[in-house]
Design a protein around this nucleic acid. Structure first.
Lengths: 131, 131, 131, 131
DNA sequence: GTGGTCTAGACCACT
DNA sequence: GTGGTCTAGACCACG
């Protein structure tokens, strides 16, 4: 089974899901720097979607400097795990700031915000130091 | 100038933007319980979009119990500010949990998460008291 | 307070609701044979709806032989309670046959049908003789 | 010939007729779980009505959890016959209770009610065993 | 071709 | 003029 996954029911564009999934797997060390990505055709087949969509994702990944397409050879991963983890962190941090701004706007306080978030972190930081 | 605003450039569906904008303004007390919403045509005209899109938004608002439409009369706001704020809070809490889960998954710790979020809350709560 | 009632939120046409409401009140003996109906204008005012709608209802009532309009005088009730009760019974019987046919079609048995209906009749016929 | 039927002369909304017809055919086992619905355009063409109306029906069916639509793929039936039959039964039971309440209100007794209904059930259950 | 959103504009019942 | 349904047809992302 492949390591790249998509969900057709999500509203997020499929090619974006692929981009994110690829970066996530590189960050996890599942996909390695200097190794080849599956071919457009192979991945399209594996995910059961159209090659055009894969192509769009690969083009975007190349634009972001994550992979590099070599004519007749395939697409090679040129970013290392740390780099993409950094990209992912920055993306998530932006999402955090956005939802925090929404929460602040809706009158949710900082402590309530952290308490709500705490449940997602398994390390005992579930807000109990608030009680 | 009207109180309901949309941004055609956003990827969020227009009718959803309207639904959220209406709920936000009710929550802020700008739109009041028992008062009438602008008519479908009037709002369509004001926002420069098609009446059908407004209709779709109003239908959804009625489905959510926020307004009640009567043919030939207009659409009356039946939810009070607290109710709508509660709906909005629940929505935002869900978003917080989601982004927190993403962050945890990406290896961002609870404290980093709260520190990142802290900037959105004006009160100097940048996460220090968590450490 | 008037005896004729309508519900603007229902999907049933308003003039039909008025027709039914009038017949129901005649059947109950609240509106009496040979007495006058409220004037179109008065009833429109009382119900807060447009006189055209009342006029439509009165026209239909006249067509059914329930009232008779006399120019410059008003509309007089010409059907007695028994007559309209009969009309109403026939209408309801038709509705019963229709819903029974739907139920039979959906595979609901006669006994289940009667048990479900029993709860609406306060007289102890709530299906317990089935148990 | 298709299995989904509508009647333009009925007052019931077309998209509602479609929703009900689809659920009925699923309940009958004519439309099967995990099979695809006809495409929006195909059904629109077959029934001679506008694709938007079909879309509205499909959207409602998805909201009810009967089908699941995937852009570019089609709409797959996800509810099984039993589930849909259950939904239909609950709907019909509500209708039974409503008409029974009307009947009781009009002075029709439980036994008369069941006798009237009996004719719709073919098995000689005309209410005799109730007396 | 497929679903989904949106525009444009019609008709209806009712105000 | 008001909400609501429907028609006609456009564009988009995807197959």
């Amino acid at each position: 089974m492949g390591v790249i996954s998509i969900d057709l029911r999500k509203r997020q564009l499929i090619y974006e899901q692929i981009v994110e999934s690829v970066k996530e797997q590189i960050g996890r060390g599942v996909l390695l720097e200097n190794s080849y990505m599956p071919s457009v055709r192979a991945l399209a087949n594996e995910l059961g979607i159209n090659p055009n969509t894969i192509q769009k994702a690969y083009t975007e990944l190349e634009r972001q400097g994550v992979i590099q397409s070599v004519s007749g050879r395939g697409s090679i991963i040129v970013a290392n795990a740390d780099t993409v983890r950094g990209m992912r962190h920055e993306q998530i941090n932006a999402a955090i700031r956005k939802v925090a701004a929404d929460a602040a706007d809706a009158g949710i306080g900082y402590e309530d915000f952290c308490r709500e978030a705490g449940t997602a972190f398994g390390t005992g930081n579930d807000g109990k130091e608030k009680s």
